[in-house]
Design a binder for these strands. Structure first.
Lengths: 344, 344
DNA sequence: AACCATGATGGAATCGTTTCCATGAAGACA
DNA sequence: TGTCTTCATGGAAACGATTCCATCATGGTT
């Protein structure tokens, strides 16, 4: 009993006009008011919905926005996705979601799938570098980076050629200001041994961390985890055990922050008495935590929304990038430097 | 400098065969080993990737899985989505995501978009009833419900016709057992006035709640919120103020649980001394909360994965549904019934 | 009245694939 | 050797839209 969908041809016949006319009426081309009305009427009566399949083939691209995130399970990326979804909905565009797991290979694979699908607009939190994105750009993909951007890797061999990725617009939170504010706050409280607990793709933040801390920076206090919860916990626990003299931690993401709280609790470190903690990204549970966490809020949803706006407004001269403000929200996880747990 | 993609025709020419042969070789049809090798070789050399656009048009459907969720920002749905993503990736299928906001209209709209795109396989946490889904099913959509299923609304007028939705497979957590276990636990601790804080689409749980509690049930202690955080908070705060005699709450989701904790704190109710709390859905922050929350864990990711399996395995006789186990995880948010705050 | 500009209209080509069908070659069997 | 079966193969027809282009009607201008 599967009844064939009504096609443009059906509408044309029923309205007694040619398919070209129907197409024109429906996509706002020129047509006489009388014809237009009749076509619209018939189309409505037959419940005609143009198939995106035919259109896409003809246009040699499928509408739709690709969205590549490290992990949809991470509250930050989920909110970012929500922003994209919101903007896409008002534009009537479907969103194709892919999780990269912060793995270059998987990212490349997903880009391939999108390309195959004819998706040509992508919003990505990139994990791969130029080697991943340059080919995609060459293939005609319209890309907007969100939250992170592809920086010419310092460790890349060969001449520092200007990467095509540099021309990709990026919607970023103002990490620089965020890190600075947090560090000012912590050093203002008297902390001198401040650790950084980072995740993948945080070169930018790390650089600011180093620069801001200046002579106070201690490379041993900088720890990078991979994307997973386990890895984050291991990094935090390892750091705390290795360096009992540290008095404050800046966690570069809510997963890292969670891990820090857990590890601190496990090692019987009292927050904020023994250890002050500032976390990047304000999540709902930051307030529920004991003590409530002091955080650097990032406008995750806005980032997504703006990125979607940018990627949809292709062709126009697009701004090179957008920097959205962060905000330090002081709750209860930081205190003045107490007596160090084990002074050197 | 946009260079046209290589098409099947290019490959055919370069390999000195017909396009039909290339198509056959690439999709595993019959071909002589010699030809096959040559075609494969040429295809690889030209970096040929078949365009999904052409294929989709011909097949009159685009591969891909539609995923309709109330809110990607909710940790539970995010994990569910992650499960779907995992399964879809191993099948090489793209996933089109849509957020319904638990709004029937938006859901219907999204279904329309998917249909238009030629997506014919959908995993949904439905919010609309038969009026939304029946037309979709009639249009040939292959649907699997996740987490909730469409029950014939008791309040629907007309004869209780067997809805086509009843034939849609559903992957559900064992709510019945979850609610029972939680209630047994709470009543075992001596609680008699147990409230239920619910969200949209929880008829099933609510029914079990009423049945299990039996004569103890108090309709005034049953409060339903809409999907948003604000609404959840209002519901919780309202409930706590209205009925200071209640001693335990079962929150039907992590948003509701969060709201309950917040509202309790705001009203200076001590958990678990003044108020015992059990929350549906184990989220990472449940452990970070003060006190750590006792929860009914649901296998969100599995639900997504299994649903994806089911929707991909169309045609085969599919099981009617899958019921996945829940687990009560006892932490610190429940205690014996203390002296009631204001005994009647 | 002849001519031109304008705008509505429909036929047909096109997008890149899959798949039906006809063709021809090669091998099997009597 | 003739016939029949089997199988690889390529041409061509879909699929459903958009869009180029030629045609035709209309109305205004000289």
């Amino acid at each position: 009993m599967k009844t064939r969908r009504t096609t443009i041809k059906d509408v044309a016949e029923a309205a007694g006009v040619g398919v070209a006319t129907v197409s024109r009426v429906l996509s706002g081309g020129s047509a006489s008011p009388r014809t237009a009305e009749r076509v619209l009427d018939v189309a409505a009566r037959l419940d005609y919905r143009p198939s995106a399949l035919g259109r896409n083939l003809r246009r040699r691209r499928s509408g739709g926005i690709g969205l590549l995130l490290p992990d949809i399970t991470d509250s930050f990326y989920a909110r970012l996705a929500d922003g994209v979804l919101g903007c896409a909905r008002s534009a009537g565009e479907p969103v194709v979601l892919g999780a990269t797991g912060d793995d270059e290979e998987r990212e490349a694979e997903l880009i391939g799938t999108l390309l195959e699908q004819g998706v040509e607009r992508v919003i990505a939190v990139p994990c791969g570098g130029g080697e991943t994105w340059e080919p995609a750009l060459r293939a005609g993909l319209i890309v907007v980076f969100a939250h992170r951007s592809v920086t010419g890797r310092a460790d890349a061999p060969g001449p520092p050629a200007v990467s095509a990725c540099a021309t990709v617009p990026a919607v970023l939170a103002d990490d620089r200001a965020g890190v600075r504010t947090a560090l000012d706050y912590l050093t203002g409280l008297g902390h001198r041994r401040v650790a950084y607990l980072g995740g993948p793709g945080q070169e930018q933040r790390l650089a600011v961390f180093r620069r801001t801390l200046g002579p106070l920076v201690d490379e041993e206090l900088i720890v990078l985890a991979r994307g997973s919860r386990d890895s984050a916990y291991a990094a935090a626990a390892g750091l705390f055990q290795r360096r009992p003299d540290l008095t404050a931690v800046l966690a570069g993401g809510n997963l890292l922050g969670e891990a820090a709280v857990l590890a601190a609790r496990e090692l019987d470190l009292r927050v904020p008495r023994d250890l002050s903690l500032v976390m990047f990204d304000d999540v709902p549970w930051a307030e529920l935590c004991a003590p409530p966490l002091t955080v650097i809020a990032q406008p995750a949803q806005d980032i997504g929304y703006r990125a979607a706006e940018l990627v949809l407004r292709a062709g126009d001269q697009r701004p090179r990038g957008v920097l959205l403000p962060t905000e330090l929200i002081v709750r209860g996880s930081c205190g003045p430097r107490g007596p160090s747990r084990s002074p050197r």
